[in-house]
Nucleic acid binder design. Structure first.
Lengths: 112, 112
DNA sequence: TCCATGTTTCAATGATAGTCGAAACATGGA
DNA sequence: TCCATGTTTCGACTATCATTGAAACATGGA
């Protein structure tokens, strides 16, 4: 991941409405949610929500797929994980420190 | 961590100059760096840098301590970790998924 | 006390982003 | 084909942020 991509991803999350949307999608898991449901859950009007979902998609943090009249959005866990790795890259100059496990999910539907 | 705090932290990182500063501090480890050294390493002019360091400090992602005429800045690894946890909270609705270890350091100087 | 060095504040400027109603668009079913 | 439903685009407004030189401030040493 490059700086530019990280800034785009972080900018996408650095906004109350979008952060709420992203977390809602994270909680929904790989199955995702239709845009209307996200609007309902977050209280964000459809037009605003569409703007924000576009931003999250552009940042690679969400993905859309068509399902009949619905557009299902899903969180992209790998992008999230890449971002975290980037932020802590070469931590402490490569010297040993104390890594911690963070619950960053994979995109797989079932645990392996 | 609350939404407001997360947005503040993410906003702090969602900016090319500040992201570079934060990563520089992360790489410096708990020992930190004086402001002037950060300016030198990142190429950001002192006045701009001061503005950004203030933002990072306000967000809890960096901390300042006085050392003679120098002000030493350090990355706050715990805040970083809290942020990651917040982003993935209640991931997949609590259903089992595949957690991944991310190298988020603690603030300790030596590994335990 | 006076100076050199390191850091922060100030002020002005230009640019970017969030919001949401109304209207347009897309899809599937009757 | 026509309609109902779900989603996106458009447009206009307001607000907030990044940048940087110059000046002010703080600290330690002579």
């Amino acid at each position: 991941m490059e700086t530019k991509d990280a800034v785009i991803a972080l900018s996408a999350l650095a906004q109350a409405s979008r952060l709420a949307v992203f977390r809602t999608l994270v909680q929904a898991g790989p199955a995702g949610l239709p845009a209307g449901k996200v609007s309902e859950l977050t209280g964000i009007p459809p037009s605003s929500l569409s703007f924000h979902l576009k931003e999250l998609s552009h940042a690679g943090l969400a993905a859309a797929r068509q399902d009949g009249r619905f557009v299902i959005y899903t969180a992209q866990f790998e992008a999230m994980n890449d971002l975290v790795v980037y932020l802590t890259e070469n931590c402490c100059g490569g010297n040993p420190c104390t890594p911690v496990c963070s619950p960053v999910c994979s995109t797989e539907k079932e645990p392996s």
